[in-house]
Design a protein around this nucleic acid. Structure first.
Lengths: 224, 224
DNA sequence: CAGTATCCTTCCAGATACTG
DNA sequence: CAGTATCTGGAAGGATACTG
């Protein structure tokens, strides 16, 4: 005989952080938000990019997030997308990504990578104030996905798809892309070993590295 | 018969966010970080400000965080404090606080509040670029704790303890303080009802509200 | 494709007892 | 005070089978 409420597990603290964690602190939730921050997704697409997550869990999470207004259904079709509340999580997710990327070493054998996670990394790393006057666009072809970064006098924006007139375009695989972001591989070392190729202006590659904060880093093997 | 590894629950994704969540994504962990972001704490102090958390869980979390370098022991005494890695979480924690504070309605009867959580809220809300030329200090006396906010030409800093020469000093209780931060109570409404008192320059109260983003907000009860 | 339903394991809350 | 160790019920998570 079951009486009353199922007793939600809340912190019951009158504090912003605790209230936020009550909503997005459960396992998988912020990863769902990550996926949707990069554009609308359907149920099975989410499942495919969140390996290890059970189908029931995903359904549960989506239902809760929808009730809270973090996630919305698309009008047409079966897609999910972020509501305004969910969009407000971008700053938090990017901050955590930036922090967590420093903990990534070399990829383990059983680790999964997705090209669009690189787009998230680019958003987290890009800081146009490093070259305040710059106006140009860079294209990234990572495995079978293409996206681009536009820098415009101190502001940056990213989008999926090819760029109209990129100053340069790099091509690489998802793992190499994240390794560069994690600092375990230098961009120029990746170029030298052929793991990454580019077309366009070589100087633009350097400027792009600067905007992403990759240029001033010490190499992975400083002289001992 | 227990064989092999206890099988850590990791996402196994080569992605910064996932790697970050593998470290601080478990229940309670980010709340421990919140406490330590406001200064070193001892075991029983942490326990007291994290009601509902079991003593074994706190020990577990602290051990893991220590192994990873997020948390360190103090040289003298029994305190815990953040290591450089943990300090790097400040931005993420403030971003999440800022997001979560919007979800806080009025406090429920069984909710706990602590004065120093207000200091976190102040850090999250303060944006000195709202008054770029301003240079002054405000003091907050919340229940039995005192802290202050210093604004200096576009930058802000906070610290525990009383201020040397504050432009104004407010006194209130922790719940009222967080209610104001959550936007369910306007600062001037709090003044009017006596839930909050101040000494010092009345204009400074207004400037402080502006820096904290409280001034331009719509009142809690707009004309219907 | 988009989910429910089920079963089993792991984690967590709370209590308490014990050690240095 | 500062923890570690143990136990227990219940909730959350994981894998998979199943349905519209």
């Amino acid at each position: 005989m079951r009486t009353g409420t199922p007793k939600e597990r809340n912190y019951r603290q009158y504090c912003g952080l605790a209230a936020g964690l009550d909503v997005i602190g459960e396992r998988w939730t912020l990863l769902i938000v990550r996926e949707l921050l990069l554009g609308p997704r359907r149920y099975n697409e989410l499942l495919a990019d969140l390996p290890g997550m059970g189908t029931n869990l995903l359904a549960d999470r989506l239902k809760k997030l929808r009730e809270l207004g973090v996630v919305e259904r698309e009008e047409a079709g079966h897609g999910y997308r972020l509501g305004p509340l969910g969009e407000g999580l971008r700053e938090s997710v990017l901050a955590l990504s930036k922090w967590g990327v420093g903990l990534l070493g070399e990829p383990q054998a059983d680790m999964v990578t997705r090209p669009h996670w690189g787009l998230l990394a680019v958003q987290a790393m890009a800081d146009a104030s490093r070259l305040p006057e710059l106006v140009e666009t860079y294209e990234f072809q990572v495995d079978d996905e293409t996206f681009h970064l536009t820098v415009d006098r101190g502001t940056v924006s990213t989008a999926r798809g090819p760029a109209a007139d990129p100053a340069m375009s790099v091509r690489t695989d998802a793992t190499t892309f994240v390794r560069i972001g994690a600092g375990v591989l230098g961009p120029f070392e990746a170029l030298a070993t052929g793991k990454l190729t580019f077309t366009g202006d070589q100087e633009a590659v350097l400027r792009c590295s600067t905007v992403l904060g990759l240029a001033e880093r010490p190499g992975p093997r400083p002289a001992a």
